[in-house]
């Protein structure tokens, strides 16, 4: 019995045996994973266009927080750079919230919906799925960050002074890479520990906000700021970006030179992505050994 290719709409099979069909060249594996990244990013991108309510929740409401800090600094007669710090921090908050609330909980949610099992059953790497989630979220957050930055700068008269555009952009993208790497790690931890991880995130949210220096230079926190810079990508990224975006002001003195902070961000990005990859491997092994992680309700 030979399965010959046919013109039936049911048949899309180029190979003549399951053994042929199961052996994929490396290029096909790579292409499939690249397509998976785009495929998984797609619902996020579509969702952004289809449900415009996020414009209100994701842009207008957080912008009010940023504005509140601007008014507080003005009331305290703080140096004008502080308004710029707040606007920059407000823009970067978009990414932090996206990582903490969407990225981290995503795999846990996917498991509840029954999608995780289908991801595991597909011939793809879970890293591609996570990358797809990250890129989808990133696009949405970039839009929000750009709006906050633009509107904040125009509305509150922020004047940026940039000498090293390339380094500033590099630090920005390195911050995002490290941040979303952390998001991927958190996503796996959420899946492993479920609700406990969720509660832990809620517990840590405000302290992390504080030590990240979203609304003030983290260097003012001394040792605590230095510690934050060593573990939180947002803290080190923002410290470097402030130094690079407001050159020449004594208020922008950072905890470390921006070049050094860029190196820290590279190390963080590599570390978090490698850790996420390792944890995903652990999760898949656990899922197959214990049968708990992928099945709904377990």
């Amino acid at each position: 019995m030979t399965a010959a290719p046919s013109r039936s709409p049911y048949v899309h099979r180029p190979s003549l045996s399951p053994q042929d069909a199961a052996e994929w060249p490396a290029r096909r594996v790579l292409v499939t994973n690249l397509r998976t990244i785009w495929g998984r990013a797609y619902p996020r991108v579509i969702g952004m266009m289809r449900e415009p309510s996020w414009l209100f929740f994701e842009i207008l409401l957080p912008f009010l927080t940023t504005s509140a800090f601007v008014f507080v600094y003005r009331a305290l007669a703080a140096p004008p750079e502080y308004v710029g710090f707040v606007v920059l921090g407000g823009a970067m908050t978009a990414f932090w919230l996206n990582v903490m609330w969407l990225m981290a909980a995503q795999l846990y949610w996917e498991k509840d919906e029954g999608n995780l099992e289908l991801y595991f059953a597909a011939p793809i790497s879970m890293m591609s799925v996570l990358l797809g989630m990250a890129i989808g979220g990133l696009l949405m957050s970039c839009f929000r960050a750009a709006v906050v930055l633009l509107v904040g700068a125009v509305l509150y008269g922020v004047v940026f002074a940039v000498d090293q555009w390339f380094l500033l952009l590099a630090v920005f993208f390195l911050t995002l890479t490290a941040l979303y790497g952390l998001g991927m790690v958190l996503a796996t931890l959420f899946l492993l520990w479920g609700r406990e991880a969720w509660h832990m995130t809620q517990l840590l949210q405000e302290p992390v906000y504080f030590v990240s220096g979203l609304n003030f230079p983290v260097a003012r926190l001394g040792v605590l700021g230095a510690a934050a810079i060593s573990v939180i990508p947002l803290a080190v990224g923002l410290d470097a970006m402030r130094q690079l975006a407001f050159v020449g002001s004594p208020e922008t003195e950072g905890a470390l030179p921006p070049e050094v902070e860029a190196l820290i961000l590279i190390a963080m990005a590599v570390f978090f992505i490698a850790l996420a990859r390792f944890l995903l491997g652990v999760i898949e092994r656990m899922a197959r050994q214990e049968g708990k992680l992928t099945m709904r309700g377990s």
Partner: peptide
């Protein structure tokens, strides 16, 4: 009883998304 996928996607979009997980060209 499978409830997989994403409710905000259209039927066509949901299937296309899953097709990408098998490396099928866009």
């Amino acid at each position: 009883g499978e409830q997989s996928g994403y409710g905000l996607l259209q039927v066509r979009e949901q299937l296309w998304m899953f097709s990408q997980f098998y490396g099928i060209g866009a």
